[in-house]
Design a protein around this nucleic acid. Structure first.
Length: 962
RNA sequence: GCUCAGAUGGUGGAACUGGUAGACACGCAGGACUUAAAAUCCUGUUCCCGUAAACGGAGUGCGGGUUCGAUUCCCGCUCUGAGUACCA
């Protein structure tokens, strides 16, 4: 029979499902290997052709590893909480779980038809209570933990309480809020419960704080920074404003240093690591305090050194600070400081503005406020600012320095204040020039005539005790001096902020927290999961509360002691968890997906440990991949997981772009569109306008005229001006999108060519990591290849005919060449080249008319990861037992079959290849040179001239220099 | 602006540590089979000159360099894509 992919694929997909062929065991003697895909959000649009790219690659790898004798964990699931389902619910009133359910069914059908070897018994859905129970549980652990800088890890909050009870607040070095109290053990014990809880909240790894959030009125929700693009929501493009709101936050900054260091230990693409490094944004420098020239009051009592510094610089509006604190990475330039600049939002601005300057400052602040985020960003050239009228003192020489405000200083970074060194910083330079402030050179070789010179070369001048020192010595000296006079110290600053952990939405995990006297308390672990309640409408309440406020009777009845069960009721937290909650730990759930007692059993985690290979898009670089690393480190700190990094190796598949096709409508003399369409090659001769045409009715850029007429009613009687009898379409590469009619759905291709062809073609398209436009131009070639492979097993009349004769040298050579090549290719994730190699091998075997079992048996195994259905079918036809192919032994490469005794040396003259000479590989270099020098062809090219030099690389090349 | 990635025939791409540039596939052209078409098979296909051919020259975004030899390494530039946005 001819190659009937439809029957074959259906049959084997059913077989795999019925026999649980890809079920992974949690314990075997085999070595383990964990291959993970980024699980999809099941959107209404279904999978498009770009989705499976990474899934196919990981499936090939998973199947390959199985053949190589590994116990492979290769699961799939759904990130099923999210905005689109909720938006749809708002519009239609349909419960998001219903649409989610439908969408998942579509995804599952689409995934199944591609023949993935997922272990579906481990499927997870983040919106299932059985799953989010553990997301809530992890939240509770975070709530019950604080970060101890001494131990450099998260520690139970109970230990902190024990310390407070015995030693008070001294000796605690924690990552915590800026405003913490300083107290003795007795004072702590004297605190009310409320006071104690309020204090503890400042230490917890997840905590409430009033943050300025990106509030999107149209979506009725708060957005994460990475969900906001240029002041508009990434999804929907609605305007976003800044709003203050009590928000759950995650103290990810506690892990900044570890997140940064960990990058050096994992095998990830360099650009991705770079993105995370930039996001974390470590800068090493110093904090320096500039005393205010005429302090208005005496220093406030300090709570602790650490907190005083920051609290005073931000001041919380008290306006009683006696110095300005700045952060700088060039503390060595401190003698070049000629003014200090505050962000307009800085808390001390009001109190430090003198009456004379009040109008100017207020006008400037008003002007800044009016500017949108977008304007402020785009307008980096214009210099603007206002003098406060106040002065600060240089802490090292007492010089009086003007204090300005300007919007080039950002409130959200460092301390919201900078020491301006116009000789070394271009922004400060422009500012100084514009407002006519002094510019003092501080390095001997500095050239500051037209712009700032940020050099670190040379030695210092105009710098007091630093004069004559170089950068390294100078920096050390300054820091020592600042510490000595108590005006500053070395400091590391991170750009990364704590992550907001909440959204004012319905379709997410409820936060397992209730409020008592305005403070959050966890519910009992035994009360998990806290089920998402039913509500009547998926919108905020009239009073602006999140949708969960609509849930009737949704109140917490405390089980805890002293309350009297069933008596006291409390309000639950009304916001839900953000999109990244469920995806920040899901790889552990796959290890033990049905476990009711734990998020995964200790044994399962100990066995699978971490993900060995993770494939997904780079768009998750600073979101999912950073949060996951954070939660993973936390889970390790509390002893639940063994590995510091969750994803050992990561590959980014490239984005698949759309390839749009155009037809060209002829425009008549009046400028109106006609019903005549001009082929692309002829448009220069006509007046035309381009129209997007559905790529599914175009093949190799040639329009199917009949399908075009059927496509839209108004084209039913279209006429065409053809070239060479064809209508050729124009082409452009754009985003894959419905409105460009360039979306290619894998279903159509799977129907037309089969899953095996689709799988191989997606790989054949090019290197996995490269972005590329989708086009189906080459898919025929892959289909023909599979048919040719099928034909190796059949005679001219499609009868299955395989010989048991011993293979000859040429056949064995072909086989072992492909064994070696495919192994090398898979190990370096070069799937496109292995497809080519398969084609070469099958071409060779076809030429050799090879139908020998000994060869074909092995070919079936090697090809199985790429085209599993056809291979399963042939495997059974070869007399093997159904279902055993996936776990067959991978053929062993034997280099002996590739050994050659002759090599056809390319002979080049001055590096230009001219001819070939075949010589025995047993010859020494000298013998080769002698043979070449006297060879007739070579002599012909030399034309009587003597070669200056002959370079012989054995088994590679001979180069003759003339 | 900064950071990263990339640029090879008509097209997708190959060339793995510097060693025959263009594998494999698409498309195109010609041929076989066929009443014809589809399917299939065969041949050719980087460009230029010349030509049935042999042969000659150029050639991996551009300009330099290192080397016996560079798509590969180094320096400078152009363009494309992605990320980032006054980060002190």
């Amino acid at each position: 029979m001819d190659y009937q992919f439809k029957d074959i694929e259906k049959k084997w997909q059913q077989f795999w499902a019925d026999n649980h062929t890809f079920k992974a065991e949690n314990k075997t003697n085999k070595p383990k290997y964990y291959v993970l895909d980024m699980f999809p959000y099941p959107s209404g649009a279904g999978l498009h052709v770009g989705h499976p790219l990474g899934y196919i690659a990981s499936d090939i790898f998973a199947r390959y590893k199985r053949l190589k004798g590994f116990n492979v964990l290769h699961p799939m699931g759904y990130d099923s909480f999210g905005l689109p389902a909720e938006q749809y619910a708002i519009q239609t009133g349909q419960h998001p779980s219903v649409t989610t359910e439908d969408n998942i069914a579509t995804y599952r059908r689409q995934l199944d038809q591609i023949g993935f070897s997922f272990d579906w018994s481990r499927e997870v859905r983040t919106s299932n209570a059985g799953y989010y129970k553990w997301t809530q549980w992890i939240f509770m652990q975070l709530f019950n933990s604080w970060y101890n800088k001494e131990a450099d890890k998260a520690i139970s909050i109970a230990e902190l309480v024990a310390h407070f009870e015995s030693k008070g607040s001294t000796g605690i070095n924690a990552v915590c809020d800026e405003e913490i109290l300083s107290f003795t053990a007795d004072e702590w014990k004297a605190f009310t419960e409320q006071e104690q809880q309020a204090e503890l909240l400042k230490y917890r790894l997840t905590y409430l704080r009033e943050s300025t959030v990106n509030w999107c009125a149209a979506l009725g929700t708060v957005l994460a920074n990475d969900e906001v693009k240029d002041g508009f929501s990434e999804r929907g493009g609605y305007p976003v404003e800044q709003k203050k709101m009590m928000q759950w936050s995650m103290r990810i900054t506690a892990y900044a240093q570890r997140l940064l260091q960990g990058l050096d230990t994992i095998d990830w693409p360099e650009p991705l690591k770079e993105m995370q490094r930039n996001w974390i944004g470590k800068s090493v420098g110093a904090s320096v305090r500039f005393p205010i020239a005429s302090p208005k009051s005496s220093p406030k009592e300090r709570t602790s050194e650490e907190s005083a510094a920051t609290s005073l610089s931000f001041g919380e509006g008290r306006g009683e600070a006696n110095y300005i604190e700045v952060f700088t990475t060039r503390v060595d330039t401190i003698f070049g400081v000629t003014f200090v600049v505050l962000a307009p939002e800085h808390e001390l601005v009001a109190s430090l503005t003198t009456p004379e300057q009040k109008t100017a400052v207020e006008e400037y602040i008003a002007k800044t406020k009016k500017k949108s985020e977008l304007d402020r960003m785009a307008d980096t050239k214009t210099v603007s600012g206002a003098f406060t009228g106040s002065y600060v003192l240089n802490p090292l020489n007492g010089e009086k320095i003007q204090l300005w405000i300007a919007d080039y200083v950002l409130a959200g970074y460092g301390t919201g204040a900078v020491m301006a060194v116009p000789s070394g910083d271009q922004r400060d330079y422009l500012f100084a020039k514009h407002f006519d402030l002094p510019i003092v050179p501080i390095i001997d070789i500095q050239n500051i005539e037209t712009e700032a010179d940020p050099t670190k070369e040379g030695t210092y001048i105009n710098s007091d005790f630093m004069n004559g020192l170089d950068y390294k010595a100078g920096t050390a000296a300054v820091i020592a001096k600042l510490e000595e006079v108590g005006a500053g110290k070395a400091k590391v600053n991170f750009r990364m902020r704590d992550a907001i952990f909440g959204r004012q939405r319905y379709w997410g995990e409820p936060v397992p927290v209730y409020f008592k006297d305005g403070l959050p308390y966890l519910i009992e672990e035994s009360e998990l999961p806290l089920i998402l309640p039913e509500i009547d409408k998926y919108l905020p309440t009239e009073t602006g509360e999140p949708p969960l406020a609509r849930a009737a009777g949704w109140k917490y009845t405390s089980l805890s002691s002293g309350e009297g069960r069933g008596e006291a009721t409390y309000e639950y937290e009304l916001s839900t968890m953000p999109g990244w909650a469920g995806s920040s730990w899901y790889w552990y759930r796959y290890m033990d997906a049905q476990n009711d007692a734990e998020f995964a059993s200790e044994e399962a985690i100990e066995y699978w440990k971490a993900v060995d290979l993770y494939i997904g898009g780079s768009e998750h670089a600073t979101g999912h991949l950073l949060y996951s690393r954070f939660w993973n480190k936390f889970l390790k700190d509390i002893g639940k997981t063994p590995e510091e990094e969750p994803f050992k190796k990561l590959i980014n598949q490239g984005m698949i772009q759309g390839r749009s096709n155009f037809v060209y409508r002829l425009i008549d003399e009046e400028g109106k569109g006609t019903n005549t369409f001009v082929s692309h090659g002829l448009i220069k001769e006509h007046n035309t306008s381009p129209i997007h045409v559905d790529v599914n009715i175009v093949e190799n850029d040639v329009l199917n005229l009949n399908k075009f007429k059927e496509w839209r009613p108004d084209f039913a009687d279209a006429e065409f001006i053809l070239e060479n009898g064809k209508y050729v379409c124009g082409v452009e590469i754009e985003k894959m999108s419905k409105r460009y009619y360039n979306v290619v759905n894998p279903d159509d291709l799977a129907q037309r060519y089969g899953a095996d062809t689709l799988r191989m073609y997606e790989m054949f398209l090019g290197p996995l990591e490269q972005s590329k436009p989708w086009n189906t131009n080459g898919i025929e070639g892959v289909f023909k290849f599979l048919r040719k492979f099928w034909r190796l097993f059949h005679d001219a009349d499609w009868n299955f005919t395989v010989s048991s004769a011993e293979p000859n040298k040429a056949e064995l050579k072909s086989l072992h060449k492909i064994i070696q090549k495919v192994e090398q290719d898979i190990e370096r994730f070069s799937f496109n080249t292995s497809v080519s190699s398969f084609m070469i091998a099958v071409n060779e075997l076809t030429d050799l008319k090879c139908n020998k079992r000994a060869i074909l048996h092995n070919m079936v195994i090697i090809l199985e990861p790429y085209a599993p259905h056809i291979c399963e079918e042939l495997w059974v036809m070869l007399g093997e037992q159904a279902g055993t192919l996936s776990y067959a032994a991978y053929p062993t490469f034997n280099p002996a079959y590739l050994v050659e005794d002759e090599f056809s040396y390319p002979i080049s003259f001055n590096g230009k290849m001219k001819t070939n000479v075949s010589l025995s590989l047993s010859l020494s270099n000298d013998e080769i040179e002698a043979a070449i020098r006297s060879h007739a062809d070579v002599l012909k090219y030399l034309d009587g001239k003597a070669p200056k030099k002959v370079i012989v690389v054995k088994g590679r090349i001979v180069n003759i220099v003339v």
